[in-house]
């Protein structure tokens, strides 16, 4: 693979639910190490796009390539093995398990599940604790996921995704439901991640988007209506019409 070939290449991706075209011939490419935001009003197809990228929903047409390989037909777990990790919009955690165990499950995915004897390795737990400290959950390692506050669960979501040691990180509204202080903290946390990690982020908070993204794609009614640098998109009249206008007014 040439260094200039895109890491993620989405080609004419479509998906309908009943009569609704959630994705309508969506195409875009993300370079390795790039940070791309996908924005758009509610119902624009952002979460559906993520579901198709991770394989949880099959597209009705089009293809997804990662590092040149067609992964359109791969199952979600196979894509995860190829380095795609996801932070869910609604927390998808292991409620009764401790925060540390939540992260350790992600770490041990690489070692394989068929280890019938012995205990989970101390190295895994140590790595999990380190990640939890990084996302700001130091001291909360032993607390069950269900006993964490909403903001803490979002942080745990991020730690779980990072624990997969991914090439591509898909963040679905990382700051959803967070207080301004929490939002600021998690934004800086994401901004400080390794620059070789490719990030696609869906977000409604424009401050967060412009702080994090190198480039922005705008989805509207299942179509990409604009694609460019943050400044380009800010200046696009159509984008302002369908989406940014509302935000600016706020």
């Amino acid at each position: 693979m040439g260094s200039d070939a895109p890491l993620i290449e989405v080609h004419e991706l479509s998906r309908s639910f009943g009569g609704i075209r959630a994705l309508d011939s969506v195409s875009f490419a993300v370079q390795s190490g790039e940070r791309r935001a996908v924005i758009g009003p509610n119902g624009a197809g952002k979460t559906t796009l993520f579901n198709v990228l991770t394989g949880e929903i099959a597209p009705s047409g089009g293809s997804v390539r990662v590092a040149g390989d067609d992964i359109t037909r791969l199952r979600p777990w196979q894509r995860a093995r190829r380095g795609i990790a996801r932070m869910y919009q609604r927390n998808e955690l292991f409620a009764p398990l401790a925060a540390r165990e939540n992260v350790a499950l992600a770490v041990s995915a690489r070692a394989g599940p068929y280890r019938f004897v012995g205990t989970p390795s101390p190295a895994e737990s140590a790595f999990a604790d380190e990640l939890l400290t990084r996302v700001g959950l130091a001291g909360r390692e032993g607390v069950p996921a269900r006993a964490l506050s909403h903001g803490e669960r979002r942080q745990l979501e991020l730690a779980v995704a990072l624990a997969q040691n991914p090439r591509v990180l898909l963040l679905d509204e990382p700051t959803a439901g967070m207080s301004p202080a929490e939002t600021a903290r998690i934004t800086e946390l994401i901004a400080g991640l390794d620059r070789t990690l490719t990030i696609v982020i869906v977000e409604h908070d424009m401050d967060v988007v412009f702080r994090l993204a190198d480039r922005v794609s705008v989805l509207h009614e299942g179509r990409v209506i604009a694609d460019g640098t943050a400044a380009d998109v800010r200046g696009d009249t159509r984008v302002n019409e369908v989406y940014l206008g509302k935000v600016v007014v706020r």
Partner: peptide
Amino acid sequence: VGIRENERRMRALGYD
């Protein structure tokens, strides 16, 4: 236990 609690997440973590 992970599969019992959240199979979807387990798949997303790379478990078959």
